[in-house]
Simulated assay, not measured.
Amino acid sequence: MDAPLASLRRAVFRLAEQGAALSALYHRACLVGAEHLPVKGPVLLVGNHGVWGYETPAFFHLIHRSTGRYPLGLAERGFFRVPLIRTVLPWLGGVEGTRENALTALRSGALVVCYPGGARETFKRSQGRYRLRWERALGFARLAARAGVPVVPFAGLGVDDTFRWPPGEERLCVRLTDDDKYRMPLVMGLGPLPWPVRLTFALGTPHAPPPPDASESRLRSFRDGVAASVKRLLTRHPHA
Rank of each mutant, 00 (worst) to 15 (best):
D2G: 15
L5D: 02
A6T: 11
A11L: 12
Q18P: 00
G19E: 12
G19I: 02
L22N: 05
L22R: 15
L37N: 06
K40P: 01
G41S: 09
G41Q: 05
L45D: 11
G47I: 06
G47Y: 10
N48F: 10
G53I: 00
A58W: 11
F59W: 13
H61L: 05
R65L: 07
Y70Q: 12
L74I: 08
R77M: 05
F79L: 15
R81N: 11
V82C: 07
L84A: 15
R107H: 14
R107S: 14
R107Q: 14
G109I: 08
G109Q: 12
A110C: 14
A110S: 15
V113S: 08
C114E: 01
P116F: 13
R120D: 11
K124R: 15
Q127K: 09
R129A: 14
R129F: 03
Y130M: 10
Y130V: 04
R131E: 13
R131G: 02
R131P: 02
W134H: 06
E135K: 13
R136Q: 11
G139L: 00
R142M: 10
A145M: 03
A147H: 06
V149Q: 00
A155C: 09
G156V: 09
L157C: 10
D161C: 09
T162C: 15
P167G: 12
L172V: 06
R175V: 06
D180C: 01
Y182Q: 05
R183V: 02
R183I: 02
M184C: 09
L199M: 09
F201R: 01
F201W: 03
A202P: 01
L203F: 11
G204Q: 06
T205D: 04
A208N: 03
P209E: 02
P212R: 13
A214K: 04
L219G: 08
L219C: 09
L219D: 10
S221W: 07
F222S: 04
D224C: 02
A227P: 05
A228N: 02
A228T: 05
L234G: 00
T235G: 03
H237P: 00
